[in-house]
Amino acid sequence: MTFGEIVHLVINEQNLFIFFSTVAILSALGVVLNLSNTVYAALSLVVSMLALAGLFVMLNAEFVGVLQVMIYAGAIVVLFLFVVMLLNLRGGEMAADRQPFLKLVGAGIVIAATVKLTSLLGAARSNPSGIQKDWMPVGPEFGSVRDIGLVLYTDYLLLFQVSGILLLAGIVAAVILAKQKVD
C-alpha cells in the first residue's frame, strides 16, 4: 500500500462529506441552542458557514463556496460580532426578549423542512442515479467563475440588475436612517 493510497483511504469524498455535514449541523445547533451567550452563537454561525463552503466546493461550486466564506463568514458575521460587542451583551440579556410567536413560526419551518427532506430522501432511494428526464446535464466548466459570469450577464441580466438596484435602495435607506439619528 503506497502512501497515496493510505491518504486516500482517510481523506476521500465520502469522509469529507461526513465531516463537513456533521460540523455544519452541530454548529448550526450551536447557533440556536446557545441562548446565554450571543458571541458564542455568532462564532458557531461562522463555523457552520465554513462547513457549508466546504460542501459547496465538493459540489464543484467553488465560486459559490468562496463567496460563502468571503461574504457571509468574512463580512456579515463580523458585522454581527461588531454589533454584539458594541452593545456588550452578556449572559442572557437577550433571552428576555424572546417571543412565543417566533417559536411557533420556527417550529413550523422545522416541520415543513423535515417533511420535504424525507420526501426527497424517498425519491432519491427509488431513483438512485437521481437523473430525471427534464434535467440538463452540466458541462465540465460548471461552477467556474467564467461560467457563472456568462450566465449572469446573458440569461439573467435583468434579474442581476434588479437585485443590484435593490441593494442600492437598501444602502440609500441605511444612509437616510443614519443621517436622521445624527441630526
Binding site: 458571541v39 462564532l43 461562522v46 465554513l50 467553488e62 465560486f63 468562496v66 463567496l67 466564506v69 468571503m70 463568514a73 468574512g74 463580512a75 463580523v78 460580532l81 460587542m85 467556474s144 467563475v145
Partner: peptide, 25 residues
C-alpha cells in the same frame, strides 16, 4: 493552482479578522 485564486485570497483575508476579534473579546 486555483481558477479563483485571487478570490480565495480575499476570502482567507476576510476570515483573518476573527483571531483578533475573539482575542480581544
Amino acid at each position: 493552482d486555483l481558477d479563483y485564486g485571487v478570490l480565495y485570497l480575499l476570502a482567507i483575508g476576510s476570515i483573518a479578522a476573527y483571531g483578533s476579534i475573539i482575542a480581544g473579546w
